[in-house]
Design a protein around this nucleic acid. Structure first.
Length: 384
DNA sequence: GGCGTAACGGTTGAC
DNA sequence: GAGTCAACCGTTACG
């Protein structure tokens, strides 16, 4: 494959002016190929972009490595990342993992526990995802839920517990984290102890009963129910709005490639993704679209793009965990709006080819299928 | 020889 | 302000 002449001339500028300027002032090291790099810091955006461009021209990774004097491992990583996510941008460096046990999650756990004191932590975990409070990437672990039950929620009021179950009261935290096999039997037994009226109370028909009198719970059950209903309503409304917008857009353009709700479409068109990556300075690397998922979760929030000052924003949940197809799951908050090239109508040159997208789609479907299988830990626990 | 990837030492930013 | 932690980076070596 012949490399365009302009590409070769650009190459020289990368290896001289751009690379040197971006690394000036930093302590640069030299790799085996003679290229300069800063350990721990990403390659300049232009070099990253060049790697993608040369790859799309048909240049072999080993040749890209030699010509740009970037290690083949790095070329491999950048290309793999691009193929997986469609983004050439480096990930966010530093910072802490966002907390998954947000007040909203804790509140929902409290709700579930108060509705059904015999519920297990693993059941709560399932409910958090099925109720739309969390997705599979942000749902707390069983141990985290157990810790919340133990530390933040504490003992339930006796009024909400079965009359003949003082032992269950004592061991409620243990039961919450019990294994499914033991849990089912114990829980059935637990429920069998309840009278009809008690069961009704435990199922969330709280009426005006005040919440536990412990210091951690100041909200009434009515308020909890209102919050819960509102959150469900909101989630449903968001999903419906997103689905409607996507469908309308798809009908209008007969394509899935730019299926975004207007809220995000505005951002996508306002920011030229190609321009965004043509930064000669490493520090000017930005993440034009990575806040989309958050905005999807909270569309009432300001729509300002993540700026350089917001570079700590955790950009990509997991490159392998979302589909390049925006319509793969229109109601999903995490899979539909995170792929920059698919959001940007003007950046077709940066889009992975169709065959690759189809392959990715299949992989995503397989991945989803695998996610529906019982996890190995549960299997082990069941067989134990 | 080309490629994918684990290991490594380093940087970064939140806590 | 320093320390810790967990994310990221590119390079290197290995299969």
């Amino acid at each position: 494959m012949v490399v365009e002449a302009s590409a070769i001339s650009d190459l020289d500028s990368y290896l001289t002016s751009d690379m040197d300027s971006s690394l000036s002032g930093a302590f640069g090291e030299t790799n085996q190929l003679g290229g300069v790099f800063v350990n721990g810091r990403p390659l300049p955006g232009q070099v990253r972009q060049r790697i993608i461009e040369m790859s799309m021209m048909g240049v072999r990774p080993c040749d890209i490595s030699r010509q740009l004097r970037v290690s083949h491992g790095c070329v491999s990583k950048i290309l793999a990342r691009y193929n997986e996510t469609g983004s050439i941008m480096p990930g966010a460096i530093g910072g802490s993992k966002p907390r998954v046990t947000t007040p909203k999650v804790v509140q929902h756990i409290r709700e579930l526990k108060q509705r059904d004191p015999g519920i297990f932590a693993w059941e709560i975990r399932d409910r958090l995802t099925s109720d739309g409070i969390c997705d599979k990437y942000t749902v707390p672990s069983v141990s985290s839920i157990s810790r919340i039950l133990r530390n933040k929620i504490g003992a339930l009021p006796t009024a909400l517990l079965p009359i003949n179950a003082p032992d269950l009261q004592m061991h409620s935290s243990y039961n919450s984290a019990s294994t499914p096999n033991h849990g089912s039997a114990a829980r059935n037994h637990h429920h069998s102890l309840q009278s009809g009226s008690q069961r009704g109370t435990m199922n969330g028909e709280c009426g005006s009963t005040s919440y536990p009198s412990n210091n951690n719970n100041e909200m009434t059950s009515d308020e909890c129910n209102q919050l819960y209903s509102a959150s469900l309503y909101q989630a449903a409304a968001y999903s419906a709005a997103a689905a409607a917008a996507i469908t309308a857009h798809q009908l209008q353009h007969n394509t899935a490639s730019t299926a975004v709700i207007p809220h995000f479409s505005e951002q996508a068109t306002r920011t030229n993704w190609s321009n965004g990556v043509q930064s000669s300075n490493l520090d000017s690397l930005v993440f034009p679209f990575h806040s989309s998922a958050n905005l999807m979760m909270a569309p009432h929030q300001p729509t300002s793009l993540p700026s350089h000052s917001n570079k700590a924003f955790r950009p990509i949940p997991s490159p392998t965990h979302f589909s390049p197809y925006p319509l793969h799951n229109p109601t999903s908050k995490t899979t539909a709006f995170l792929n920059p090239p698919l959001l940007d109508c003007a950046s077709n040159s940066h889009r992975p080819n169709l065959a690759f997208q189809q392959q990715q789609h299949q992989r995503a479907a397989q991945h989803d299928q695998q996610d529906c299988q019982p996890d190995t830990d549960s299997k082990a626990l069941l067989s134990a």
